[in-house]
Design a protein around this nucleic acid. Structure first.
Length: 527
RNA sequence: GGCCCUAUAGUCAAGCGGUUCAAGACGCCGCCCUCUCAAGGCGGAAGCAGGAGUUCGAUUCUCCUUAGGGUCACCA
């Protein structure tokens, strides 16, 4: 007992090295759970597989896991599920951590920060799983299966095989005699270990959002626990690790709903306490299908590239499938921790709505301090001007109420860097009472007036143009409209004539106006 | 196809048998503001999938139908 305690203490302090005695230790942990922990504390885990990109569905799962932990003062753990050797991607793990950091989901334990229940990468716990699998064989809850892939494949293609259709694998090896097994083992034939499902009866469990789920055991396949390469399947590693890491709330997408009974049977076989289950409704695309790459930008980095802010993404995701008690929508992460509760998670799948995300993004942009917005703009301004223009502050001020995605900025301001002649038809505008004739009439006066200005600021330009309208007995619009169109070359601009002139500077403005006037005069003459 | 799940406007959704019963938000439309567009303000159109049953009374409870989705891998 003393030795055990020492081991536990060592482990809690995190000084326990990842070694082959891990098996022994985990085994000890599992069988002495009362000694080992703080049963009250909520522990959730984000267990992504390092596939190289962070799907918003995964991010939302991570968010809810984080919120569940934080809202009850519990711990949030990150565990990497890399038991599929085929799917390893370079830098994938890194991406997971940078994403979590960008959105502010700080974890208490994980491969990068350590913790008392490590290692937190499944490929580093490989020597843990076979022992557990063999324990299950000993207790009669699992068996070795020597069927090769070809047989399974042909089983699957054999439509006549109703037995297979009923429960997946046909359980050929389930009742192999000891003698037969020994012989196969001796021959060195590779095998997997499968879970022995009960043939009759039902299994049910209580899900925090979906309620009671019951399935017939006859529906359950004798799933593979340990692959021929000695790696565990997700189905197995997941259960072993969730238990070993003392996870109290298993939070995941509802696509796992139908396999949860199998996991519970595993917990029962080991005699372990089962966790609470919180299955989340799926995030789907416009077409009603599970959101996937063909729906467009569905990874966190895609979204950021498209100009969405991490805070806006998180806020939107929080409200996608969960509804606060209070009738409001703008929540910071901290506020979400306060407000979140599992019982307000909805059951039906929700469509990922880019328009609504865009609205959130606009809200966050407008809420920003001007200086902060400016720094967000800078890379986009540099993209157009090659450098940060002197008028950046003014530009940002004009952009802030008008931008919904940062990536829209370049197209909105490109006209400032490159002057293009407006389509002649643009000079005709009913509301401003502007026509091509009035434009041709007013332009020389505008040029003259502006050229004569000694000051180039908002007020001077404003006064000059307004007084010009009065002098010519024209409406303000008849002056402002053509000036803006001429100088910008387009009908819609961020800011009015005065702002655009201000942005361009006196020399550039006058030069553009002259160019346009010359062009328009030429156009006019033939007719 | 078997099994499981879901079902309030185009979308996210409140509602958890009857004081207000169909909130609120995005989007859409209109008006105001206005040197364009935004932002902002005001207003509008738009919904309980269908059918039985329980009940004095169903959006709300039960069943059926229909429609969607998920899942049936040595993927997670």
């Amino acid at each position: 007992m003393t030795a055990f305690c020492e081991q536990v203490v060592k482990k809690v302090k995190g000084s326990f090295p990842a070694s082959r005695s891990l098996y022994v230790c985990a085994n000890t942990i599992c069988e002495n759970k009362e000694v080992y922990m703080h049963p009250k504390s909520v522990r959730t885990r984000f267990a992504p597989s390092p596939t190289g990109y962070m799907h918003v569905g995964n991010l939302r799962t991570a968010l809810y896991e984080y919120l569940i932990a934080r809202s009850s003062d519990g711990e949030f753990i990150v565990r990497i599920e890399d038991t599929d050797q085929q799917r390893q991607t370079e830098g994938a793990e890194e991406l997971i951590f940078t994403t979590l950091e960008k959105v502010g989901l700080a974890h208490d334990e994980g491969p990068d920060v350590g913790g008392p229940y490590g290692p937190y990468v499944q490929s580093q716990r490989l020597d843990l799983y076979p022992g557990f699998a063999h324990k299950l064989i000993d207790s009669g809850h699992a068996y070795r299966c020597f069927c090769d892939k070809n047989r399974l494949e042909s089983l699957r293609h054999d439509a006549a095989s109703e037995e297979y259709a009923a429960s997946g694998y046909d359980r050929k090896c389930r009742n192999l005699s000891c003698h037969a097994v020994d012989e196969l083992l001796a021959s060195g034939k590779p095998y997997v270990i499968r879970q022995k499902m009960p043939l009759e009866g039902t299994t049910s469990f209580e899900d925090a959002v979906f309620g009671r789920i019951t399935v017939d055991n006859s529906e359950l396949e004798d799933q593979i626990l340990l692959k021929t390469d000695g790696f565990p399947t997700y189905n197995f590693a997941n259960v072993v690790d969730d238990h070993a890491m003392r996870i109290t709330h298993v939070v995941r997408g509802s696509e796992y709903l139908s396999s949860t009974p199998k996991y519970n049977l595993l917990y029962d076989a080991f005699g372990w306490e089962k966790p609470e289950y919180v299955h989340l409704p799926l995030i789907i695309g416009e077409d009603g299908r599970k959101l996937s790459k063909r729906h467009g930008a569905v990874s966190f980095s895609n979204l950021v590239e498209q100009g969405y802010l991490p805070e806006a993404i998180i806020n939107y995701l929080a409200l996608l499938g969960w509804c606060p008690k209070e009738n409001r929508e703008l929540y910071s992460l901290e506020e979400l921790c306060e407000a979140f509760s599992v019982d307000r998670i909805s059951k039906s799948p929700s469509v990922f709505d880019y328009q609504k995300l865009e609205w959130f993004n606009g809200e966050y942009i407008r809420k920003m301090a001007a200086s902060e917005f400016l720094s967000h703009c800078e890379p986009w301004l540099a993209q157009v001007f090659g450098t940060i223009p002197p008028a950046a502050t003014l530009l940002a001020e004009l952009l802030q109420p008008r931008v919904t995605r940062l990536s829209d900025i370049p197209d909105m301001i490109r006209f400032l860097a490159v002057h293009q002649q407006a389509d002649v038809s643009l000079y005709t505008n009913k509301k401003s009472k502007s026509t091509l004739d009035s434009t041709i009439k007013v332009l020389p006066a505008v040029i003259e007036k502006l050229s004569g200005l000694s000051q180039w600021d908002r007020e001077s330009i404003h006064d000059a143009l307004i007084s010009l309208a009065q002098e010519l007995e024209m409406k303000n619009g008849q002056v402002m409209w053509p000036a803006r169109i001429a100088v910008s070359g387009q009908s819609v601009t961020p800011g009015g004539a005065i702002e655009i002139l201000l942005l361009l500077g006196k020399d550039e403005s006058v030069s553009r106006l002259n160019k346009v006037y010359a062009f328009l005069s030429d156009q006019k003459e033939p007719s």
